[in-house]
């Protein structure tokens, strides 16, 4: 049984989310075809055997990225290998390409899966509904299981290995083509991919109140700033930082909720974090019900002290 995995890469290596998708595929099958494309793909392709791929298809060409052209190439590769699975990461690119490839394969899509297991000749999958308020277990009946895999959920492959790389010319013309990217600041992590998230809410009183949140995130070094819907709607923070049912669902190692009361929509977006810390003035705030550790107190008193201590800990390595 072959599984095809679309691999996003950066600096000559697969992105962590893609390494996890490769690991998930390899845990199900000994025939994993990794597909890479774009600038730097040759360097990334060479190392994918070590991440669990048994074959690598390097799509070559210097044309602009197009999600529909990529979907065509993936569907073609799935067909050529007679693959039973097509996995992508539930990243913005993966989520964009996956439904198109699925439609070309006359298969439906299972987005943001939290588990994929073998069952008889096929698979069973688990994915959240209502932003995680419910967990659905499904039995896919599609000819190819097309799935995007939730980040920070699957284990990357650790067994090493080598994979033969073949080069294939990519489909060049797409219906929608990427003209350019307005990149965000170098090193700035997205709230959905950071191992630590420090989120602020209405209790910070004003947009400037987020200064203490940004400083704590900076002290961690590998943290992203998150926000509640209330402060995004008020225009204090951009929507890209919103955690919750109408924002992003996150599951970092550590989630620190500061001055966030914990509306059900917010809890749905962060409840699967490994460790949750809540800092809130109101000891009755619902956020404390999901927190592992809480401090009852004013953010403007607690955070500067916490920031200083975290800075010291990180400086020690």
């Amino acid at each position: 049984m072959t599984i095809v995995v679309y691999v996003e890469h950066q600096h000559g290596a697969p992105k962590r989310a893609s390494a996890e998708a490769l690991g998930a595929a390899r845990s199900l099958s000994d025939q994993v075809v990794a597909v890479v494309a774009g600038e730097g793909a040759d360097a990334a392709a060479a190392g994918l055997g070590g991440h669990g791929a048994t074959r690598v298809v390097h799509l070559t060409g210097s044309h602009a990225f197009s999600p529909d052209a990529m979907a065509q190439d993936l569907a073609k590769i799935v067909g050529e290998h007679g693959a039973k699975g097509l996995f992508l990461s539930a990243t913005s690119t993966g989520s964009d390409v996956a439904p198109r490839a699925a439609a070309l394969l006359d298969s439906t899509l299972f987005s943001n899966c939290t588990a994929v297991n073998a069952a008889g000749d096929g698979f069973e999958i688990t994915r959240p509904w209502l932003a995680g308020k419910l967990i659905a277990e499904l039995s896919p009946k599609s000819s190819v299981l097309c799935a995007t895999l939730r980040r920070n959920t699957f284990q990357a492959h650790s067994g090493g290995g080598n994979a033969e790389v073949s080069q294939v010319a990519a489909t060049e013309t797409g219906q929608a083509t990427l003209a350019r990217i307005e990149a965000k600041e170098e090193g700035k992590l997205d709230v959905s991919e950071a191992p630590v998230v420090v989120s602020g809410g209405r209790g910070l009183k004003e947009p400037e109140g987020f200064g203490v949140i940004e400083e704590l995130a900076a002290a961690f070094g590998d943290a992203a700033v998150g926000a509640s819907r209330a402060v995004v709607d008020a225009g204090w923070r951009p929507h890209g930082e919103q955690v919750g049912q109408t924002g992003k669902t996150v599951s970092p190692q550590l989630y620190i909720a500061v001055a966030i009361s914990g509306a059900i929509q917010h809890l749905a977006g962060m409840k699967t974090s490994k460790v949750i810390v809540a800092i809130n003035k109101d000891p009755e705030a619902p956020i404390f019900k999901v927190a592992d550790y809480g401090i009852v107190g004013d953010a403007f008193e607690v955070l500067p002290v916490l920031t200083e201590e975290v800075r010291k800990i990180r400086a020690q390595g």
Binding site: W129, L134, A136, I295, P304
Partner: peptide, 20 residues
């Protein structure tokens, strides 16, 4: 759909203290 469930509640945490 073979099964739908409410995810298990998180283990109860604790308040470690007040203020800084």
């Amino acid at each position: 759909v073979t099964k739908l469930s409410v995810p298990p509640a998180r283990k109860e945490g604790r308040i470690v203290g007040e203020g800084a």
